[in-house]
């Protein structure tokens, strides 16, 4: 809503810089976790702009992530609102997305939203071998938590419960 381009769709394309485009795209929320943006999540990888064609490079969190199509549509809508007509959205798999790309501010937002943020992925290697994890409840900060299922409401989350406040919560899995 605060976009400087909001009422400026007739802007001359040659005046539009790559930074302007990046700024506009960085407002797009993730469709499944709307408190963080696709940029904070690390899905938005690159922007190429030659004043005619805009190429956006994105990478999926999980290979089967159903949100990718929605994200692509959101990017197209946003770019069209800037007056850009030639849009290419490129999906890349390499380098593979990792939770390490989620910024610290985004991790704070996740926790406030009720999703326990991922720890560093090297930490999670231990949990693959079944070792306990240093994880706290996003509601009451208790570390007395228990996993209900490794697979939660979306591919990127696991389901936990807090044994102190008794609330269930999602944990953003490390990959």
């Amino acid at each position: 809503m605060n976009s400087v381009f909001r009422n400026n769709t007739t802007m001359n394309l040659t005046q539009l810089s790559k930074e302007d485009i990046l700024l506009a795209l960085s407002e797009i929320p993730d469709p499944e976790i709307p408190v963080i943006t696709i940029e904070e999540l690390g899905i938005l990888r690159d922007v190429k702009w030659d004043c005619i064609t805009c190429t956006i490079v994105i990478t999926p969190t999980y290979t089967g992530c159903p949100a990718m199509k929605v994200i692509e549509d959101d990017i197209r809508i946003k770019l069209k609102s800037l007056g850009i007509e030639n849009i290419i959205v490129e999906l890349v798999y390499s380098p593979a997305w990792t939770t390490d790309w989620i910024s610290d501010t985004a991790k704070e937002k996740l926790e406030k939203y009720g999703i326990a943020p991922p720890e560093h992925s090297s930490v999670d290697k231990g949990t693959l071998l079944g070792k306990p994890r240093d994880l706290r409840c996003p509601h009451c900060s208790s570390k007395n938590v228990q996993m209900i299922s490794q697979f939660g409401s979306t591919a990127c989350k696991a389901l936990y419960r807090c044994l102190d406040c008794r609330e269930p919560f999602d944990y953003f899995k490390c990959i």
């Binding site: 999926p60 999980y62 290979t63 089967g64 992530c65 159903p66 209900i148 299922s149 490794q150 697979f151 939660g152 409401s153 979306t154 591919a155 389901l159």
Partner: peptide
């Protein structure tokens, strides 16, 4: 929980 787990895994396979 298992229903959700299996479908998440199915989604990974179809994505792959």
């Amino acid at each position: 929980e298992e229903d959700i787990a299996l479908i998440n895994i199915a989604l990974d396979f179809v994505g792959n």
